[in-house]
Simulated assay, not measured.
Amino acid sequence: MSKRSCPCGLPQAYEQCCGRHHSGAVAAPTAEALMRSRYTAFVRCDEKYLLRTWHPRTRPSPVDFDPGMRWTGLEILETAAGSVFHSAGTVTFRASYRGGSLHERSRFERVEGAWVYVDGDFVE
């Protein structure tokens, strides 16, 4: 078992953090937790998890991974709603990669009780 912190930036090991969501053992309880677990899924090229947590009306097939992309960090900048008490929410984040960063405001909704990614807007 790895003792390194999870790629999402939280101090827990992957297995105790996003790995629990990826395996299906525990659903992400908030939009932010889902955002973190999806970032980690991109780091790990976990297409199955990404598709499972993508809203059915916006889900691509397949996920288009860039083989040269090396994700280097995630910074959560703002959250709005998206708690265990909400049915929708947004998470604004900056995901860094070797050579640059992606800044996005993502929208999330609950579908059958589970948080899913709907879409996002790039932020300048």
Rank of each mutant, 00 (worst) to 15 (best):
P62C: 07
P62G: 11
V63N: 01
D64T: 15
D64A: 15
F65N: 09
F65I: 11
F65A: 09
D66M: 09
D66A: 14
P67A: 14
P67E: 13
P67Q: 12
G68R: 11
G68F: 08
G68Q: 14
M69I: 13
M69Q: 14
M69L: 15
R70W: 05
W71L: 14
W71I: 08
T72R: 15
T72G: 14
T72D: 13
G73H: 10
G73S: 12
L74G: 03
L74K: 04
L74M: 11
E75I: 14
E75G: 07
E75Q: 15
E75M: 11
I76T: 11
I76N: 07
L77H: 11
L77Q: 15
T79A: 09
T79I: 13
A80Q: 12
A80R: 14
A80L: 14
A81P: 00
A81H: 11
G82K: 03
G82V: 05
G82Q: 03
G82H: 03
F85R: 14
F85K: 13
H86F: 09
H86R: 12
H86N: 15
S87G: 13
S87K: 10
S87N: 13
S87W: 05
A88L: 08
A88E: 14
A88Q: 10
G89F: 00
G89C: 05
G89I: 02
T90Q: 08
V91H: 01
V91S: 03
V91R: 00
F93T: 03
R94V: 13
R94K: 12
R94S: 13
A95G: 09
A95Q: 07
A95C: 09
S96V: 08
S96W: 09
S96P: 03
Y97R: 09
Y97I: 08
R98Q: 15
R98D: 13
G99E: 10
G99P: 07
G100L: 10
S101T: 11
S101E: 11
L102A: 07
L102W: 02
H103R: 15
H103L: 12
E104I: 05
E104A: 07
R105P: 01
R105F: 04
R105S: 07
S106F: 01
S106E: 02
R107D: 01
R107A: 04
R107C: 02
R107F: 03
F108Y: 08
F108H: 02
E109G: 02
R110P: 01
R110C: 04
R110L: 04
V111C: 05
V111M: 03
V111Q: 06
E112S: 14
E112P: 00
E112I: 02
G113E: 05
G113V: 06
G113I: 05
A114I: 06
A114L: 09
A114T: 08
W115V: 04
W115A: 02
W115S: 04
W115G: 02
W115C: 04
V116L: 04
V116A: 01
V116Y: 00
V116M: 05
Y117T: 01
Y117C: 00
Y117S: 01
Y117P: 00
V118T: 02
V118A: 02
V118Y: 00
V118N: 00
V118L: 07
V118K: 00
D119F: 00
D119P: 00
D119I: 00
